[in-house]
Computed example of a mutant assay.
Amino acid sequence: MAINSTTCLLLLLFSFGILGSSATVFTVQNQCSFTIWPATFCGNGIATLGDGGFSLAPGASVQFPVPQTWSGRIWARTGCNFDSSGNGKCVTGDCGGLLKCPGGGAPPVSLVEFTIGKDANDKDFYDVSLVDGYNVGLGVKAVGGTGDCRYAGCVTDLNGKCPAELQVTDSGSVVACKSACAAFNTPQFCCTGDHATPQTCSPTQYSQLFKNACPTAYSYAYDDATSTFTCSGSDYLITFCPS
């Protein structure tokens, strides 16, 4: 479904019960030993959850009602510094130097993607994706739903396993791990050109490294079979740096 700004506004009204619709609940939890700045966007980039971005201290959590048919993504930014007007910069996951993200985050970044069903009996689709690289661990647990409601995520610290050619460093420390597409920008690694179909774009040594470390996360563009999960009538616990 194409989501424009009007649709996102209506969905937000639904989520707070203003138009009478029930909502799924996302609980976003920070188990990292450092502050993160979670970011969200809806559909075409119109933010509806947490105004698009917010600070979350170690051990803290926050809840958001999420309306039926909501589609979007959530990721963590690290090493951020914002002024009182919400202007600044993040070491990873930055989105235009703004606290309240107007769109997607700069890769490499671990992210969770959702499409919420139209009612409690309809399927929600969710996945944790490393297609844009990795910055922090991330997990999604379905709570109270029915169906194939499996855990999705990447618990392993991939920054410690990241090959030198994919590393992003800050002050001498590895803070993120690029995808091979971002590092080399070739059709083989980006699933473009002659490699733009599931039949012609196969796993590479780099995507296999991600997959071996995080079996339930997307490792490359056509990694659908083992990485997309469904559940009906569920709430979701989204944990950064899960144990």
Score class of each variant (00 low, 15 high):
I46Y: 15
G172H: 10
P198Q: 05
S15Q: 04
T35K: 15
S219F: 01
G147L: 06
L13A: 14
G45T: 08
C8Y: 00
I46R: 05
L13W: 00
C214R: 01
T78M: 11
G86F: 13
L12M: 11
G117P: 02
V174D: 00
G97T: 08
L237T: 12
C90Y: 08
G172C: 10
V109K: 00
L166F: 09
G96L: 11
N185Q: 14
P163C: 12
G45S: 08
T186F: 09
V112T: 08
L138F: 03
G105N: 02
S110P: 02
S173L: 10
D148L: 11
A182E: 12
Y218H: 06
G160L: 12
D170A: 15
I3R: 03
G17R: 08
I36H: 01
T69G: 02
T200W: 01
D235H: 14
D235F: 15
Q205E: 09
P215I: 09
G96E: 07
P163D: 08
G97N: 09
K141M: 09
D170M: 13
T24W: 03
G103T: 13
A213D: 02
T239Q: 04
Y222F: 15
V128L: 07
P108R: 00
G72I: 00
G20E: 10
H195Q: 10
G43K: 03
V136S: 03
G137F: 01
Y151I: 06
T204A: 06
T156Y: 00
T197F: 06
V168K: 02
Q63H: 04
G145A: 04
E113G: 04
W70F: 13
